[in-house]
Write a protein that binds this DNA or RNA. Sequence first.
RNA 1: GCUUGUGUGGCGGAAUUGGUAGACGCGCACGACUCAAAAUCGUGUGGCUUUAGCCGUGUGGGUUCGAUUCCCACCACGAGCACCA
Length: 795
Amino acid sequence: MYNTKEIEKKWQKYWQDHQTFAAKTGDKKEKYYLLVEFPYPSGTGLHVGHARSYTALDTVARLKRMEGYNVLFPMGWDAFGAPAEQYAIKNHIHPKEAVKENIKTFKKQIESLGISFDWNREFATTDPEYYKWTQWQFLKFYEHKMAYKAKKNINWCPTCKTGLSNEDSAGGVCERCGSKVVQKEKEQWMLKMSDYAEDLLKGLDDTNFNKRVKLGQINWIGRSEGAEIDFEIENAKEKLKVYTTRPDTIFGATFMVIAPEHPILEKLKNKITNIDEIKKYQEYAKTKTEFERTELAKEKTGVKVEGIKAINPFTNKEIQVWISDYVMMNYGTGAIMAVPAHDDRDYEFATKFNIPIIKVIEGDTLPYIGEGKYINSGFLNGITKKEEAIQKMLEEIENRKIGNKKVNYRLQDWIFSRQRFWGEPIPLVYCEKCGWQPVPEKDLPVLLPDVANYEPTEDGESPLANIDEWVNTTCPKCGGKAKRETDTMPNWAGSSWYFLRYMDPKNDKEFVSKEALDYWGKVDWYDGGMEHTARHLLYARFWNQFLYNIGLVPNKEPINIRVSHGMILGSDGEKMSKSKGNVVNPNEVVEEFGADALRLYEMFIGDYEKDAAWSTNSLKGCKRFLDRVWNNGEKLNDKKGYTNESLVHKTIKKVTNDIKTMKFNTAISTLMILQNDYDDKESITKDELRVLVHLLNPFAPHITEEINEKYNLGKPLCESAWPKYDEEKTIDNTYELVFQVNGKVRGKETVNVDTSKEDMESLARQNPNVQKFTEGKEIIKVIAIPGKLVNIVVK
RNA sequence: GCUUGUGUGGCGGAAUUGGUAGACGCGCACGACUCAAAAUCGUGUGGCUUUAGCCGUGUGGGUUCGAUUCCCACCACGAGCACCA
């Protein structure tokens, strides 16, 4: 038989020695840029899920190369992040050491799968040569007033004295110590992503993302059309501005609700008679974690603001003002007009606190959300169409100058600060005299200090704040004493532009050369996990659009196609995890069955975009198929060409199309059908074997190259042109004509493709079994579809 | 709750400008080889009845000569978002 380990090693070395996968910037061939999300090199090593997506795009990459494209298929490491930092704190080593080790393991594992990455372009986000440019780009944001500092709440563990990500504070408790997480206000660097909401939405039209990916983006941006309307406050000059998508229901607005943090409370505190109670509620709202606000706060809470009243501008009636945490300060204006008859939340609130409810749209139940006839609504009465009522109301609001149309987005500005050690330092310094100053370009990168011992600070600052010799510096403007910003960038920063760097990874003069940007253009095909299709993709698009707007990149949208692969689950159908004991280690699979069998199986497992459960038996089936392909070598004859031409040409056509449309499983089953045909033959030609191993090569690159060489079928497959099919030869001369009576199959006959409808019909009538079912019955209709069937309808 | 996707044999899954449902693989059964087992090869494999047929793609209806495919209602499961006004 054959030794998978020897074969794999041999061909991996061949590809390395011949630089088979090196992409050439500026090459005359047409470019094709394939990208898989670079992994976080965790200590646990490669997951079979990584193998799935890498193999999938590797298959496409190998096909595209053989079709004559200059393929860029790079790989790198997204290596900043909390796990490396925590590991380092615990073991008193620098995180870069841990990262180095993990990358080594990961790389070795990926290489053992024979993925055709161009390793010449490898880098890690943690390389100073890389994060220099991440910092440089941050300064571009700063320079264009797209970065600013603002107070924001962070999840805070009072015991560990550290800020926590939402993931680390799931369930409202600190993941490490179990203490209750609270909200703490902190000054943070922000990127003005909300300015780009409309562009990020519109830009989707210039991409070929599939529906589910586009929807993810659209939901995240969350565009809504409505109006801002001013409500007067009795006895005060202040007006209360609300945002609503339903101005048509304003006659039913019987109270107002404002967010606990709303600034008007401070402005009107002298008029508010229950200010202590209000303050108490504000405190209560602040201590609530995100978890409590969503999970536990099923019941509405709130406090009536005594002493002030608002006026409904259309009914001119006094209405109550309440504060409640179901209104968010960071969306709209932080205040709403509540229409309890026609909004679930307002209804719940009004019933709980006995606030009047006025119906303005006819309907049987309360709250009634649907469309209907307007009542109790002055000039809107009698209208039945929502759109019409909204339009009329908007005109009236603008005529009376009490408000205007307004589009809102859920998309918020990007909180860009992290109080962590293991991230890109934000390259700014603070000078008492000159304020915030960017670090000059010549001083980039701002390196992380080489210390092995660092602990979180008492007050939630980054661990960097404790390292005096690093913090203290001079002001680039006045030369006086200054302090560095100690916050670092989020993990998302480095991954927001890495696809650009791959185009020109060694450049120490620019983040990417213009030449490389112009040559490689967009990422043609980007694959990643479902968990990244919302945020990461949005961040990357935002970052790129910003670079485009300041003239640094040639395309506004950086990615053409984005696909999201399904997960590989354990054999029990559950997500793989150590605790469940259902983890499959790709190393062990390669060891026992070989890389080709693993690759083939992961592509055969099912629909690429869906989750799939691991099955070692199915894997063995794929291995058996490879063995049968190998055994073809035993029965080669001296003849030339294909004995079953139409099957071969059909196979070439289907495999080619299926790979390009990600139907990897059916591509493989088509190859299995071809092999089954060869198995039925006494002997096969070299041409027949060559075409099979060629088509199989993108999936199983090692064994196919070995067979090709062993039987002198031709030059190495990776250096040969992809097989072409002849459309004419895929068409059969005959087909199996189906006879139906009343839609049921009653007989079949092989006929010539050009059999006329008349002949088809008479063949059907002559068929004994058809006669049996039509005998003594009245024939109403005969339908003849050439190439398919004849259906006789009887009564 | 909203948005969205998916429901096909014992299992993973094929097939949709509406036209032979179950390709391919796994598993299983029987047979060959073997002292025996594994591996391999061959045959069969949706269910029910057997010369032929009936039923069958989550459930109920509809359109059609013909529906896994189109339409309506419902059920189940998964994913994403989650008090966004």
